[in-house]
Amino acid sequence: MSGLVAPLDVASAYADVMETVFTSAIAGKAWLATLAILLALVQICTGARIFGKLAGVLPFDGGTAASIHRWSGRLAVLATLPIVFHCVTILGFQTTDARVAIHSIVGSFVYGVLASKLLLVRVHSFPGWALPVAGGTLFATLAVMWVTSSWWYFTEVRFGF
């Protein structure tokens, strides 16, 4: 019985926390993932601004863009933490259909891509094209994750909190 109680407690506690805000844990994940992808869009825009692009669209200097970029990134990572906890430690790797399989496979790489991208930020000896490519790849993986989870949930299950 001991092997059963702890997971139930953890899963129930997680659901309790999520359901203080959302109607269900999965609805909470859908909205947190949406927040993350929106922040990732901010990341793309401010990242482009840091590299001197979009100056006409984003009327602030590179330092401001860098600050927004850092904080939106931190918030995006924070938003993904409850999702990762639920998907990885409770639901696990599944391949029940194509959507779930794609979500599981790509999801395994998200934090790997994130860690690699952060390395590129810290170590300046990489070629100049590496960081934008890594950032774009991170955004692409997040987009795949969002389409195979939140978009599916909002269009196939329900659109609401």
């Binding site: 997971p7 990885v88 696990g92």
Partner: peptide
């Protein structure tokens, strides 16, 4: 991450 997902420590 993949290993943790296979382990599913809190799976009910």
């Amino acid at each position: 991450v993949y290993g943790l997902a296979q382990w599913q420590p809190f799976a009910v």
